[in-house]
Computed example of a mutant assay.
Amino acid sequence: MHLHTAAINPGALLIEANKVIRQHEHYLSGMKATEVEQKGNVLVFRGEFFLDEQGLPTGKTTAVFNMFKLLATLFSDKYHLEI
């Protein structure tokens, strides 16, 4: 299933992902990946989505979603989570 990717533990991957986030031109203060899971061949990242008091998305929510999508694209071709 993971013939072309390297195994990595979730903690190490989150460290690497958060470096990418902090160095990205669209970084927002407080943006951070706090969880990662394997869904098939895709790594799914999660973290704070900056919802408002009613739990609705804010302008920052789109930026966070796009960042997590970027992380999935960058890292899913390189890594799979260690079991």
Rank of each mutant, 00 (worst) to 15 (best):
T62Q: 11
V42G: 00
L74C: 04
L56G: 08
F49L: 14
R46G: 12
N9H: 10
N9C: 09
H24M: 02
A6D: 13
G55H: 02
Y27F: 15
T34S: 15
R46K: 11
V44N: 06
K39A: 04
A6V: 11
V44L: 03
V36I: 14
T61H: 03
T58R: 04
H4Q: 13
L3H: 15
Y27Q: 00
G55S: 01
A17R: 00
A63E: 02
M31Q: 07
I8Y: 11
E25R: 07
E16N: 03
T73G: 11
I8P: 01
N18I: 05
P10A: 15
A12T: 06
F75L: 04
P57V: 01
F49C: 10
I21L: 04
F75T: 05
G30I: 07
A63Q: 09
A63K: 04
M1S: 03
I8V: 12
H2C: 00
G47N: 04
Q23D: 15
Q54T: 07
Q54K: 08
L81M: 05
L56K: 10
Q54R: 09
Q38S: 07
T58N: 03
V64G: 04
A72P: 02
L3G: 15
K60M: 11
N41R: 07
S29R: 08
A17F: 03
V44Q: 04
Q23I: 12
V42H: 06
F45R: 01
H26V: 12
D52P: 00
T58A: 06
K19G: 08
T73H: 12
E35K: 13
L51C: 02
F49G: 12
Q23K: 10
F49Y: 11
L71Y: 06
V44D: 03
M31E: 00
K60G: 11
G40T: 12
I21P: 05
L81Q: 05
L70C: 07
D52R: 02
G55Q: 02
G11K: 13
E53Q: 07
H2S: 04
M31Y: 03
K69C: 06
A7D: 13
A6M: 13
T73M: 14
V42A: 06
K39W: 07
T62V: 13
P57E: 01
K39H: 12
D77E: 15
A17G: 08
H80Q: 08
K69A: 13
H24T: 15
L70F: 12
A12R: 04
H26W: 00
E35I: 05
L70V: 09
L70N: 10
